Computed example of a mutant assay.
Amino acid sequence: MTERFAKAPGDPYRYGVYLRPDPATCAAVTALTGQVRAQYGFVSAGAFPPHATLVGSQHITAPVDDIVAAVTRGIAGIAPFTVHNAGIRRQGVGMVLGVHHLADGTTPNPAFTDLAEAVDRAVAPLVTPAPNPDPHTFDRATFEAHLSLVSHEMYVRPDLSEEVAEYVRGLPVPFPDAFPGDTVALYRTRSDDWSGRWWTTLTWEHLHTWRLREE
């Protein structure tokens, strides 16, 4: 427990590399998370910019330029791909827009997983151990791309699970059923306490954007 709650060099910062959706999907995510906050006070999903995590909450003490250079090399030659949006569904205890599969809704989109794996491989040498939060390690077998709508509060308010799910599904917010997967972004996040309810003090800063191009 002492190690779990210890401070680490580089605290209070973490880094994430995300796939940014198209503007229409971003607007839909913002509208949905904003409504959840307005009705229930849940902020964890909306505390981030709309995104699908490629690698998240990485403890890195290297200079930002080194992170940018590593990801630039790691995703060189990766082409843009189509992201299919299966709509609102449960994932774990939360609610998401499901964007992991191809148009058939059952086959994982290999291009999405390939991109996440390439980003993870690029930043892994820069990551230093930190006791909190738990390590965010990439596993190709369990990776599932998604856009969060309701997340960590469901661990502390499971009594609202069914009500919040019904509410989110009833919101009249349209979104595209597909968008180009061509925009990757680096963010630095900050929290006063990564060992607890970090989302209550989370702030973030956009650092860099990459655009995937057809060769």
Score class of each variant (00 low, 15 high):
residue 60 I to L: 13
residue 9 P to Y: 15
residue 96 V to M: 05
residue 198 W to N: 12
residue 151 S to F: 08
residue 33 T to H: 05
residue 174 P to M: 06
residue 5 F to Y: 14
residue 112 F to S: 14
residue 9 P to S: 15
residue 144 E to P: 03
residue 213 R to I: 00
residue 112 F to Y: 15
residue 83 V to S: 03
residue 35 Q to G: 06
residue 164 V to R: 03
residue 103 A to P: 10
residue 170 G to W: 07
residue 203 T to Q: 11
residue 81 F to S: 04
residue 96 V to F: 03
residue 138 F to Y: 13
residue 113 T to M: 10
residue 106 T to R: 15
residue 53 T to W: 00
residue 154 M to I: 02
residue 214 E to G: 06
residue 198 W to A: 14
residue 170 G to Q: 11
residue 61 T to N: 09
residue 29 V to D: 02
residue 44 S to M: 02
residue 131 P to I: 00
residue 149 L to D: 01
residue 197 R to I: 00
residue 194 W to H: 07
residue 116 A to R: 03
residue 75 I to N: 09
residue 178 A to R: 14
residue 43 V to S: 12
residue 131 P to D: 13
residue 76 A to G: 13
residue 137 T to D: 12
residue 83 V to I: 01
residue 82 T to R: 10
residue 196 G to K: 13
residue 101 H to Q: 11
residue 135 P to K: 06
residue 47 A to M: 02
residue 32 L to T: 02
residue 111 A to L: 07
residue 147 L to H: 11
residue 149 L to S: 08
residue 54 L to E: 03
residue 152 H to F: 10
residue 201 T to E: 08
residue 140 R to E: 05
residue 49 P to V: 03
residue 64 V to H: 07
residue 68 V to P: 10
residue 18 Y to T: 05
residue 61 T to D: 09
residue 32 L to E: 03
residue 23 P to W: 00
residue 144 E to M: 12
residue 41 G to Y: 03
residue 92 G to N: 07
residue 94 G to S: 06
residue 204 W to Y: 15
residue 154 M to R: 08
residue 43 V to Q: 10
residue 129 P to L: 10
residue 154 M to G: 08
residue 64 V to R: 11
residue 206 H to Q: 13
residue 33 T to W: 00
residue 124 A to L: 10
residue 26 C to T: 01
residue 62 A to G: 06
residue 30 T to W: 00
residue 107 T to V: 02
residue 201 T to W: 04
residue 121 R to C: 05
residue 177 D to L: 10
residue 166 E to K: 14
residue 120 D to L: 03
residue 213 R to A: 13
residue 92 G to L: 05
residue 158 P to A: 12
residue 201 T to V: 03
residue 28 A to G: 07
residue 201 T to M: 10
residue 87 G to F: 01
residue 151 S to K: 08
residue 66 D to E: 15
residue 26 C to F: 01
residue 127 V to Q: 09
residue 41 G to K: 08
residue 177 D to A: 13
residue 146 H to R: 14
residue 39 Q to G: 02
residue 162 E to A: 15
residue 127 V to N: 09
residue 72 T to L: 04
residue 156 V to R: 14
residue 118 A to D: 02
residue 12 P to M: 08
residue 196 G to L: 05
residue 179 F to Q: 02
residue 83 V to T: 01
residue 21 P to G: 06
residue 176 P to Q: 06
residue 147 L to N: 04
residue 99 V to E: 01
residue 26 C to H: 00
residue 44 S to P: 02
residue 192 D to R: 14
residue 57 S to I: 04
